[in-house]
Design a protein around this nucleic acid. Sequence first.
DNA 1: GACACGGTGTTGGATATTCAACAAACAGAT
DNA 2: ATCTGTTTGTTGAATATCCAACACCGTGTC
Lengths: 183, 183
Amino acid sequence: MSEKLDRRKQYTRKMLKESMIEMLKETSINHVTVKTLCEKADINRSTFYTHYRDPYDLLMTIEDEIISDLNDYLNSYRFDQDEESKLMTKKLLDYIEDTPETFRILLNENGDPAFEKRIMNVAHQFVMSNTYELDETVSDYYSTYIISGAIHVIKAWIASGRPEGTDDMANLIHAFANGELHL
Amino acid sequence: MSEKLDRRKQYTRKMLKESMIEMLKETSINHVTVKTLCEKADINRSTFYTHYRDPYDLLMTIEDEIISDLNDYLNSYRFDQDEESKLMTKKLLDYIEDTPETFRILLNENGDPAFEKRIMNVAHQFVMSNTYELDETVSDYYSTYIISGAIHVIKAWIASGRPEGTDDMANLIHAFANGELHL
DNA sequence: GACACGGTGTTGGATATTCAACAAACAGAT
DNA sequence: ATCTGTTTGTTGAATATCCAACACCGTGTC
């Protein structure tokens, strides 16, 4: 027997995850009960408890998987020094565009407020090396500033239905970070 | 324990049915193997055999359910004498429009050739009473004529993406049957 | 406080599905 | 005819899920 997860488990987890996302469209995590979640997923309630402790546990698992997958995705690209932040932004946008609904839901007020922060931390890892010429404290603040700005622009982009392509958005965000537009 | 089918069985059958329809999009029933079907459905092969004998059995079951459901659907309407055939046509078209892909696939050459005949038999039951003024033999031929014509028009309608609404199509088919258009 | 309702966490037994394996059959190539 | 690869139909043991039930908890109402 290989490491492959039994397909029954795969199915059960998949259904519960999808149902969680669906429910977060309508209500906040505080109001997601195990009962209603299992009704939506058509999964027996006791089965839920063999996989997860409670709805928060499930949501954390969803987030963990996204963060892990996003890390793998971004790590699969070799970023050149001078194009690094712009290409990373493009790739992040491409990733989001693959499952836009999920990000819209998880980054809004119904989900876990910490998810936004986790995405920012991921981005942080890739941006840091692009600010090496600043001293450490300023560098940290600066990368926080541009990442926070970028994330909120991305959230607005998602919420408005992503009218711009990922290329255009990456260019725009890059221009902001480079101070090409300022007050 | 009520008559409700265990949800696991429901899921297994649902997945196998959907996968059968999907496969018939690409290939004929002769080339649908249990192995490939189960791969598509992500269901263990031995499980397939607890539910169905072979792929043909599964296809017959799909057809049986559609015919039964269609009968129930049409029987739920009270057809008045003078509007009977036209309204029945409209209802049949409405039913088809609910799952157009399924009908397109099952009525084309990849599926069971007999399905078309079964749909015609259903329609036959509802049309017969509208030809009571003819003697039995002529009445039979006549209803066969108009139903065969109607079914093939419906097939063409489905195949061309259903550009006309069900109202318009019902009116058109009714006009054909009434001899309002003829050579 | 008592009561009703809804949800929870757990339990035990039943059941459906999984997986791997096997022998047999089949189809195509030589 | 022989060989090879694929599919089939079946089997048994393991496992995941199901279902019903229970005691408990929290909330709201009277």
